[in-house]
Design a protein around this nucleic acid. Sequence first.
RNA 1: GCCGCGUUCGUCUAGGGGUUUAGGACGCCGCCCUUUCACGGCGGUAACACGGGUUCAAAUCCCGUACGCGGUACCA
Length: 495
Amino acid sequence: MEGTVRVRFAPSPTGLLHIGGLRTALYNYLFAKGHPGGVFVLRIEDTDQSRYVEEAEEDIVNSLVWAGMNFDEGPGKPGGFGPYRQSERKDMYEQYAEQLVEQGHAYYAFDTTDELDKMRERLKKSGNPSPKYDAITRMSMKNSLTLPQEEVERRLEEGEEYVIRLKVPRRETIRFEDEIRGFVSFESKGLDDQVLLKSDGMPTYHLANVVDDHLMEITHVIRGEEWLSSAPKHILMYEYFGWEPPKMAHLPLIMSPSGGKLSKRKAESEGIPINTKDYIEQKFEPEALVNFLAYLGWSPGDDSEIHSLDELTEMFSLDRVSKGGAVFDYKKLIWYNEHYLREKSAEELFPKIRTVAEEHGIKPDKGYMMKIIPLMKERVSKVEDFITQGMFFFEDPEEYEDRAVKKWKDDSADLLEAYIDEIKDLEVDDFEAGILKDKIKKVIEAHDVGFGKLMMPLRVAVSGMGYGPDLTPTIELLGKKTTIRRIKTAIDKLG
RNA sequence: GCCGCGUUCGUCUAGGGGUUUAGGACGCCGCCCUUUCACGGCGGUAACACGGGUUCAAAUCCCGUACGCGGUACCA
């Protein structure tokens, strides 16, 4: 690859950044950073004023930063190709659109929305299921190709609303090479005369995209497959402008488990968080999401599964991106999250856990929490599990799980009474896991029963649950007073 | 409908003419470890959409069919 690689992530700020968008950003980032001096640009495509959402840009930036993908150029990060918000580049687009008109590759159109609707309706009725404003229909519409020149000038001068449309040739085959799919070709007759400049003076995606990618010297356009069908229009525009088109790569879509593009509605009904913000709020490990997303539609070709963002950067290549859509497997994400959780130290985990604890109305003492973390770490899927499954470290169980209660047998109360007798006089220093375990042994030997006979009821009494971390270290942490109180309560409640 | 793009275990994928009894991972199941639950270790389950070619040989190349997905806006 000659020259410096420059890629862009170009979301439109119409809402929170969704997970598919984050993956597109990731592939762009990996590709850029995998090349020496590669530049990752963030460009905000805010050309649709009706769908603009104020907080969206901030959310996009936050999401990228959270995931560890810092952009080299973008809003607030000038790099000589700004501004990086299309709304701030508005004037340039008009100029380029006019240029195309002058060259005869575009034209003014004065049709109202109403007239367009009527045209489509008419064509539909006469058996055309997908009416287009194309080489044929444009001749019966109101535009600078059909109206006398004086009238066009008059309308323009009088400030009548107009759009500029691309004059797509009648029959031409447009062929280009996609980095992932190889050569693809389209017939121009299937394309319509795309609006380039809207009546509010803003460019459409197609114009802005082509102009900016060229002006920003983007070398590789890496975007979702939903753009593949409009790529030929873009190719046509590059040709008319006399610009060399960037290389293009259309990524397979992320699919919902029930099929179809992973949309907000589908994701939510299938229990999959859709916005990056949701993952941030649910305290997913960013490394886990990144790792998972990288492998959703790409693989390095070996048997490895676990890689950091930096490692992925080294391994990534477009030709290893798969062509088919990839179903979002939430369980695999959880597996990744568990993996990264286990890799982290208590010290690293503490700040997040503290936040979750506070959300649950608990103010954890750090020293205490640091002892709980190693006990819980091997069995949590998400950070919040430290608290939700470890609530008994902070308060007495209010009720006992059904599953746990089943382990309470007729002799449980007697065994627990005996255990209380064993531990009640223990000095503070002796209230320690090893000794506590010895005491359990002593009781079961005296009663001639198995370990579980005491262990199970004890666990239920202390935690209210039928499973959990190592019991005696847990009891050690809880302390003598709490332990004995909980055992007595359990005997009262469960007999 | 039309145009385009796809199709290997349930899911993510490796494999791109002979190396394949099609490999790995998640999930699921079992065993071991642990006198809990997990972690971990070991093992198992399970796939080349279909039909025609080409070839000595096809999951791999070609053509059809089916199915899926995307696009078909003054949205991106």
